[in-house]
Design a protein around this nucleic acid. Sequence first.
DNA 1: TTGAAAGCGCTAACAC
DNA 2: GTGTTAGCGCTTTCAA
Lengths: 337, 337
Amino acid sequence: MNEKKNVTITDVAKKLKLSVATVSRALHSHPSVKESTRKRVVDMSDKMGFRINEVASSLRSNKSKTIGMIVPKIYMYFQSQIITIIQNELYKYGYNLIILQSNDSLELEKQAVETLMSFRVAGVIAAVTLYTVDFSHFDVFLNNNIPVIFYDRIPDYENDSIKVCGDDKQGGFEATRHLIEVGCKNILHISGPLQCYLYKYRSMGYKMALERSGIPFKEENLVCHELTHENAWSTLVNAFERDPSIDGIFTANDTCAIAALEFCKSHNLRVPNDVKIIGYSNDNRTAITTPSISSVEQFPNEFGIKTVSVLMQALNNEAGAPTKYVIPVKLVRRMST
Amino acid sequence: MNEKKNVTITDVAKKLKLSVATVSRALHSHPSVKESTRKRVVDMSDKMGFRINEVASSLRSNKSKTIGMIVPKIYMYFQSQIITIIQNELYKYGYNLIILQSNDSLELEKQAVETLMSFRVAGVIAAVTLYTVDFSHFDVFLNNNIPVIFYDRIPDYENDSIKVCGDDKQGGFEATRHLIEVGCKNILHISGPLQCYLYKYRSMGYKMALERSGIPFKEENLVCHELTHENAWSTLVNAFERDPSIDGIFTANDTCAIAALEFCKSHNLRVPNDVKIIGYSNDNRTAITTPSISSVEQFPNEFGIKTVSVLMQALNNEAGAPTKYVIPVKLVRRMST
DNA sequence: TTGAAAGCGCTAACAC
DNA sequence: GTGTTAGCGCTTTCAA
């Protein structure tokens, strides 16, 4: 025990024969406190090993320095990238991050909202589950003046929330147009559930590209389900059985693009000669397959930085009307196309 | 505004004409409170939209329901896997998770310790930076009775902390022995900095395997640096220039194993015919390269579950003497060997 | 089984 | 520029 435990502001005040109010002000660099006093307080605090008790501070001021985040699953490539940058950014502004996972369960997502309310977080950053269509469980934040930023998986309607999303329609469009440009005439699109904003808009881009090229959209070429390796595999089995002339595959994530590549390899379909493949997110795995897989870069860094800066604006009441911020995407061409 | 804001325990008490003390007890299922009262309180709380204010609760009881985590970088494969499971596990016990990243900077790690102290976390889970040799900045937790569990990157000496680590020596041993078994005679080991527990023990396993097979250890075949793609590449350039007879590469992470594979491909070295490669961590990328890369599975799930259960024991003072828990590893053989 | 009351450490009027 | 003081919402003795 070489360190005193839990030195309080009162201890520092006594030692310096000052009031706690002055110490508090000094620690927050309040303008009315004399510079020499401020310095004495800061020095003594360091010397005594004082650390502000954020819990007491939050309770009293009713302001917390903690941001709550709700995500489906931390380990997903895009999510882990964006969480990384968000934590680093928040740190710069002096905020901390509590992360809760919904595991793509609506029930857990609702519980997460309750938990964050209990912790009186200052703000919330959320990417909802695949199945969240009704966002009203988030209203409690807005009713309590806690800003919410939805990112990536956002509500597909106007409301009081702030949204940061990728340009999913454009991404879907560019991916599909690219396949068409390199010669595909019969393109299968493996999509996630269409009630989810991302997938809805990516598929809209897909349809738009077909239309612009005069290729008729075929209902059976748009398959929607959770984007797992297994699901993609059985979709591909069915699709190629039904129609062996498929010559392009656009998957709405990279896990499925990898599945598609493996499927083609195992069924003697040459990639890119017989079938061309493009994924979405530019997962780091896409660069190392043979052949490497084309994808759509979503710029998680820009995404995260934008999300945090928008949140900070909202916390400072500098935000204007609720807006949707769109992060551009970029086609990354590789050997699979 | 369809929801009242910040209903307090006092509001509930007034409504029921009870004291706040009884309400508090009821909410915590204190045995002395009559079941019928408990039910009335719980029902009324729900009805009024009451949520306990964890901030006030923490302040008063001096106990928090928050665990702090310090990691180098969230997005690293093994880290994101383990964070995922740790958050889910903690949730089961009613704890929340604040994550701070050191970005492998010792300075940031020290600041993270201060931040977690300020937030009066109940316990700490930490994987230190590559450069943390002196762990004394963590002492403040122990001095304040806050348990610390080090995992993965742990102190390499006896102290009062609890440690959960993989069987790195065994992993290094098995990886190297495997290369030897499949015919390698001249094995390069690309390691991280040896002051870091992980890499020290993996390299000890490497040496042990060589020794047991009567292969002399060559100093120049053990290269240490941060395990990035670029570093691995230049190491490989140098190594094969110096000694083209290298026929096996054991890298202490998978990023470098992937770099090794790419290097071999680009230098007309056939894998596994000319050179065999094995990595470490069983990163999901290793399964999808061509050829796929052998690796050492570290079981992040078991790792995370063990870490949390040990932490819970410590929080309940059920922990015995500080211990090191070792999670077994498993060789995953693929096409690169 | 319940209530009264003190106080966790801090902030922010309001006073001087 | 600094001090006094009243709580923030809750837990927890102590008393009834």
